[in-house]
C-alpha cells in the first residue's frame, strides 16, 4: 500500500485536479497530461527557471511564473495556454534560434531534438529576428564526446548534472549575457580535462545537438535525459528501501 501523500486542489486551464503537496505546477500539469513546454527543466536536477518557456499565468498574480519552480498552493488557478503566453513562448524560441546556429538539416539531433520539438509545438514556422551567426569553436577533443557551442542554448542541464549528480563540476558558464558560453575547466579543450570522469551524463541530458557522441552523423544522436531522474531515485535508494519495507 502506497503511503498517503497530502494533496491540494488546484485548477489548471479550467480543469480541477489534485496536486501533490510540495510538487511544482509543471510536475502536476505533466502528471495530468497538460503540456507546458520547457527546455532547461530536467526532472532530477534543481530548477533554474532560465529558459522561461514554462511561464504560466497564476490568478491574482501580476507576474508570470515559471511552472518548473512554482510550488502548488491550495486553490491555485493556473493558465498554461493563452494567446499572450503562446506569443511569448514563440518569441523566446525565435530568440534562441536566432542566437545560435541551429541548422536542423545538418544536426546530429535532427528529428530527436527537444528544441526542434518545442518549436513545432509552439508554432514557430519562421524566425523574425536577426540571425546572430556566432562563430564558436567546436570542441571535438574528447575521445568520446563532442561539444558544439553553436547549438547550445545555455539551459545549463550539463552544468547541473555534472555538479549535482556526478559531483565533478567539469562544466560551468563563463562570461555573461550574449557572450555567455559553456566551458570545461579553465576553458581548455575538453579532451585535456583533468576533472572529467567520462560519465556522459552531460551528453545524456542535452536537449539539443550541442553535446553528442563522437561519430554521430546527421539525425543519429539519441539523448537519454530521462535517465537522470532514475539515477537520482536510485541514489536516494528509493527502490531498495521500498523493498525493505515490504
Amino acid at each position: 500500500m502506497a503511503e498517503r501523500v497530502p494533496t491540494v486542489p488546484i485548477t489548471i486551464d479550467g480543469v480541477e485536479m489534485e496536486a501533490t503537496a510540495g510538487e511544482t505546477v509543471l510536475q502536476c500539469a505533466r502528471r495530468h497530461g497538460v503540456d507546458i513546454p520547457s527546455l532547461c527543466f530536467l526532472e532530477g536536477l534543481s530548477p533554474v527557471g532560465g529558459c522561461r518557456l514554462c511561464v504560466v499565468e497564476v490568478a491574482e498574480d501580476l507576474r508570470l511564473r515559471p511552472a518548473c519552480a512554482t510550488t502548488v498552493t491550495s486553490d491555485m488557478e493556473v493558465t498554461t495556454q493563452s494567446s499572450r503566453l503562446r506569443s511569448y513562448r514563440r518569441s523566446i524560441l525565435e530568440l534562441l534560434f536566432a542566437e545560435g546556429n541551429h541548422v536542423c538539416a545538418v544536426c546530429v539531433s535532427n528529428g530527436a531534438c527537444e528544441l526542434q520539438d518545442v518549436a513545432v509545438r509552439c508554432g514557430m514556422d519562421h524566425v523574425r529576428y536577426e540571425l546572430q551567426a556566432p562563430r564558436r569553436r567546436v570542441d571535438a577533443s574528447h575521445p568520446r564526446y563532442v561539444f558544439d557551442p553553436n547549438r547550445c542554448i545555455l539551459c545549463t542541464r550539463c552544468v547541473r548534472v555534472c555538479d549535482e549528480i556526478e559531483g565533478a563540476h567539469v562544466w560551468d558558464v563563463a562570461h555573461r549575457g550574449h557572450g555567455a558560453e559553456l566551458v570545461t575547466d579553465l576553458h581548455r579543450p575538453w579532451g585535456e580535462s583533468t576533472s572529467c570522469t567520462w560519465c556522459g551524463k552531460c551528453v545524456a541530458s542535452c536537449p539539443t545537438g550541442a553535446l553528442s557522441h563522437q561519430g554521430s552523423s546527421v539525425g543519429e544522436m539519441r539523448h537519454t535525459p530521462d535517465m537522470i531522474a532514475w539515477l537520482v531515485a536510485a541514489r536516494r535508494r528509493e527502490w531498495t528501501e521500498r523493498e525493505a519495507r515490504r
Binding site: V103, C104, A105, V106, H126, V127, L131, R135
Partner: peptide, 20 residues
C-alpha cells in the same frame, strides 16, 4: 511563400555567415 528551410531560415546556405 518561403519554400523550404533555406528560404525560411537561411539554413545550409547561411552557414557561411559565421565565417564573415
Amino acid at each position: 511563400v518561403s519554400f523550404g528551410d533555406c528560404a525560411v531560415s537561411g539554413n545550409v546556405t547561411a552557414m557561411r555567415n559565421p565565417l564573415g
